[in-house]
Design a protein around this nucleic acid. Structure first.
Length: 880
RNA sequence: AGGCGCGUGGCUCAGUGGUAGAGCGCUUCCUUGACACGGAAGAGGUCGGUGGUUCAAUUCCACCCGCGCCUACCA
């Protein structure tokens, strides 16, 4: 059944805003993207990345999320029952920091709860006041309130973009369901023996005052200096060590040099004496020492770096923790058992000038002390500082969201044991298909280099609490060796308000009673469960079984070591499986100078004005023309190209559907040949999309739409589609045009959902019995099956295009426009090409605006090439 | 330092063992009956460098240079 619309009833231009509003609402009202829970057919299950709702949106969000959406839409049109949820990762430090700044507050657990506290955004005046201290419960309420706001903004953007998310599957990582699953995960890992707690040196951020995991650590180049310090040796003599951290001298517990280093060999086994504090420490050999670095001999402290921690363990060294959790030097009593000294009085005098100071301040202070000869290890002689500090630049470990270097601080933390499962995790990573494939290396590389088990406890507030209490001994100290775990039926629990099993509230924090674990989980401990949260997992085991492992995990490459890694680890530890079969890694959006966009650089592009200016379809086009895994410089030109394509789809649809003819089969060679090329495009695009190469598919579709359909075929059959004399030819042309459009619109639908839906609604929605193009079937070869067969397939169409091109070139060379009529036209082609074009010639002559016999065979010409023998313009026709 | 990726017209990016592609920008031209939020034609590249394999290399291999990222590097 062919369609004929009156184009004058349609607007001249496509109004993207109107369409977005109209169709966005229609899709919501009809539950168009709803996953069919009871559906028996093939499913396609997506583990959508829950964005951190930090309040700020940028084009990077648009970019990667659209790349997922196009795959979801493709799969849905292929008839799969698509499970496409959206989550919000709302808990964690970024949120806490945003809430602190937004309301100008700090969480202070000791402060009493203020019922009904709600604060406005802090203005300038408020910011000048001292920070407002609020209780933990109030702080959490503020976090929840602000993230709810932020989530609204994100959801608005997603809907405007046309993400075909099933919003009934929306979740957040702080919701009661997520808390329950995260706590259940902890209990399960505990049951399986995968978690442990230990008091041990841990990477510690002194500003956030929390432990952090290896995955959240990054190195930053920092200026520092080698300080050469003279150490004494018991029984006389001395040597010079080099250190970048002289402020840790009081924490020195040993001295080490390379076992083969002739300079220091005779020192091994003897004891060194530190300057200022005059602490005797062992001198031991270690192959880990680099003879070339510094002076080749170094001091071992509590703790300057990871090697110090290693030596502390291996050599059984004592603990002298001088850097406190707040980043200041803690009090120390020299002459005590922990801090021995040959001259305790002098040591304490020196240390008094350091205690309470920050690490930076302490370094400045101690360097001055070290210039005093009285500080020498022997109590006299040369000053401990040999020469001036030598400035160097070296990498320093920072928490990725922190501002001051991390310290190793010995604290009690919970860990998930991973180091003994490296190989299993690497193998699991190999069983997942990575797109592009080389991203697999990132995962492998990271896993192989893993140094520490996963520290999952954070000394923070807005997050999922550990479902754990501890008994209090008679002296009131908690007994961490006997944690009381929550009953899994009681989850989620908050041990700070819920009572430990077997106790009464009156026993909280009383000797002989219990105390709640105040720590919360690392955010990744919960976000690594997004597949399980989305499926329902323990609460819905049957559903979980149906949906897990999932099909697709889209994400960006910088979080392979966190999100992908932890998610694979969790799935392995809990169920000995992989969480998903495919991972699609999106690239970054870079600024036009190819620099990473970041708030601190101030080069972030926000998306809303782009949607207003170019329309959602054009913005999607920009996102979808970038290949997976490839970083893309933001370029507004591509948005313009997208908008041009949208316009073209709109106009071409209008034209095609305005043609009318009685129903009839496609019979003409040109029409069949055109459709043969289209069919190839369908096959190619389908193959590429199945391989997640949406950008390659778009390229193929767009190229055909533009140069095969609108620039050429439409022009070739314009005349016949309106013919008053050739009824059969007219029917064939209109049928082919409409079939072509019907196919092309569906090919473009996942990319440009709004304009294709609009055009679809003009007729195909009715004739195809598919009210929405997004639930219409993806084009397949079957639709081309009833066409007559012709020799050469698309060859006649290709030759026709080349013919038209030659004519246009000729006209342009003669200074005429495409539409100019020709008084005379003679073109030569090879005999084979002439034969091939014979059945198409009527159309081509009409399209050329010529008359009569125009094509003649000539030996010696290459097949498919044309030579203009004669071309004479007709007199310009006056406009009627 | 190791690994991975990238280097193609002014710009953004495709692509391929056999004559180099698109869009933008640029030049010239056009309000033709879907479309000026359009259209036609044209100029513009020794495909980072050097070797090698091959009848043939921009494509495969080796080395080098430049850029980016990941990992390691706090004495």
């Amino acid at each position: 059944m062919s369609i004929s619309i009156d184009p004058s009833t349609l607007s001249t231009h496509f109004d993207s805003k109107l369409a977005e509003d109209k169709w966005g609402r229609a899709w919501t009202d009809t539950d168009l993207h709803r996953f069919d829970e009871g559906g028996e057919g093939a499913r396609y299950v997506i583990d959508t990345p829950p964005p951190t709702v930090s309040g700020s949106l940028h084009v990077g969000h648009v970019f990667s999320y659209t790349q997922t959406d196009v795959l979801a839409r493709f799969q849905r049109m292929c008839g799969r029952n698509v499970f496409y949820p959206m989550g919000w990762d709302d808990n964690g430090l970024p949120t806490e920091r945003r809430v602190q700044n937004y309301f100008h507050v700090r969480c202070e657990p000791g402060v009493p709860y203020e019922s009904g506290l709600s604060l406005p955004m802090a203005d300038k005046a408020v910011r000048k006041e001292p920070v407002r201290r609020v209780s933990r419960a109030n702080f959490i309420e503020l976090c929840l309130a602000l993230t709810a706001e932020d989530e609204k903004a994100f959801k608005g953007l997603w809907q405007r973009l046309g993400l075909s998310v099933d919003w009934s599957l929306e979740y957040s990582t702080i919701s009661p369901d997520s808390r329950r699953l995260a706590q259940w995960s902890f209990l399960d890992l505990h049951r399986r023996g995968h978690v442990y707690q230990v008091e041990a040196p841990t990477l510690w951020d002194v500003d956030f005052r929390t432990a952090v995991a290896q995955a959240e650590v990054e190195d930053r180049p920092k200026k520092g200096a080698f300080h050469n310090l003279r150490f004494g040796v018991e029984g006389g003599g001395g040597f010079v060590i080099a250190t970048t951290r002289p402020e840790l001298l009081a924490a020195c517990v040993a001295v080490a040099a390379h076992p083969d280093d002739e300079r220091y060999k005779e020192l091994f086994g003897r004891r060194a004496i530190t300057p200022l504090f005059r602490v005797p420490v062992p001198i031991f050999p270690s192959p880990l020492v680099d003879r070339e670095k510094g002076t080749g001999i170094l001091m071992v402290c509590t703790f300057g770096d990871a090697t110090d921690v290693q030596w502390w363990r291996e050599e059984g060294l004592p603990l002298r923790q001088v850097v406190g959790r707040d980043g200041r030097l803690a009090p120390a009593e020299f002459g005590s058992e922990a801090f021995p000294s040959l001259d305790a009085e002098a040591a304490n005098r020196y240390y008094q000038g350091l205690a309470g100071r920050t690490v930076r301040e302490a370094q400045r202070a101690i360097v001055e002390m070290l210039r005093d000869p009285a500080g020498a290890a022997a109590g006299h002689g040369e000053p401990p500082l040999a020469g001036e500090p030598e400035a160097i630049e070296h990498p320093v470990k920072f928490y990725e969201k922190g501002d001051r270097p991390l310290e190793f601080v010995s604290t009690r933390q919970w860990f998930v044991r991973l180091l003994d499962r490296k190989q299993e995790l690497i193998d699991a990573g190999e069983r997942v298909r990575w797109h592009p494939d080389f991203m697999r290396m990132r995962f492998r590389n990271w896993t192989e280099n893993l140094q520490l088990d996963w520290c999952i406890s954070r000394q923070r507030y807005f997050g999922v609490p550990f479902p754990v209490w501890y008994p209090l001994l008679e002296d009131g100290a908690p007994d961490h060796s006997r944690p009381i775990l929550a009953d899994e039926r009681s989850l989620p629990v908050d041990p700070l308000t819920d009572v430990a099993p077997g106790y009464g509230e009156s026993q909280r924090d009383q000797p002989g009673g219990f105390t709640g674990e105040p720590d919360i989980f690392d955010t990744w401990f919960t976000s690594s469960l997004t597949p399980q949260i989305a499926t329902g997992w323990v609460g819905a085991p049957e559903r979980h079984k149906r949906l897990f492992p999932m099909d697709l995990r889209p994400q960006s490459h910088e979080i392979i070591r966190t999100w992908a890694f932890y998610t694979i680890a969790k799935a392995w530890l809990h169920e000995e499986t992989i969480p998903w079969r495919h991972v699609a890694i999106s690239g970054w959006v870079l600024d036009p100078d190819r620099k990473k966009m970041s708030k601190s650089k101030g080069n972030v592009v926000t998306p809303m004005h782009l949607l207003d200016e170019y329309g959602a379809d054009a913005v999607r086009y920009w996102s979808l023309s970038a290949r997976l895994g490839t970083d893309t410089a933001f370029d507004e030109k591509v948005l313009k190209v997208g908008r041009r394509l949208v316009t073209k789809v709109f106009n071409a649809s209008k034209f095609v559907l305005a043609q009318s003819a009685p129903d009839g089969p496609v019979v003409r060679v040109l029409d069949v040949s055109f459709l043969a090329r289209l069919q190839e495009t369908v096959e190619r695009a389908t193959t590429l999309l199945e391989e997640l190469d949406y950008a390659g598919a778009l390229d193929a579709i767009e190229r055909f739409f533009w140069s095969g359909f609108t620039d050429t075929y439409v022009e070739m059959v314009k005349s016949r589609a309106r013919s008053e004399t050739d009824a059969e030819g007219r029917a064939s042309a209109v049928a082919a045009l409409q079939l072509g459009l019907k196919v092309v619109l569906r090919l473009l639908a996942p990319y440009l959902p709004y304009v294709t839906e609009e055009a679809w609604s003009w007729g195909f929605a009715r004739t195809q019995n598919a009210p929405s193009i997004h639930r219409a079937a993806w084009p397949s070869s079957e639709e081309f099956a009833r066409l007559p067969s012709i020799d050469g397939g698309g060859a006649a169409f290709d030759a026709s295009c080349a013919f038209l091109e030659a004519v246009r070139r000729g006209k342009s060379g003669a200074g005429a426009t495409v539409g100019r009529h020709l008084a005379r036209l003679r073109i030569a082609a090879s005999p084979a090409t002439t034969r091939l074009l014979e059945p198409c010639l009527v159309d081509l002559v009409a399209a050329a605006r010529a008359e009569g016999e125009v094509l003649e065979a000539r030996e010696g010409l290459e097949d498919g090439s044309f030579e203009i023998i004669d071309l004479e313009l007709a007199e310009p026709r006056p406009r009627s």
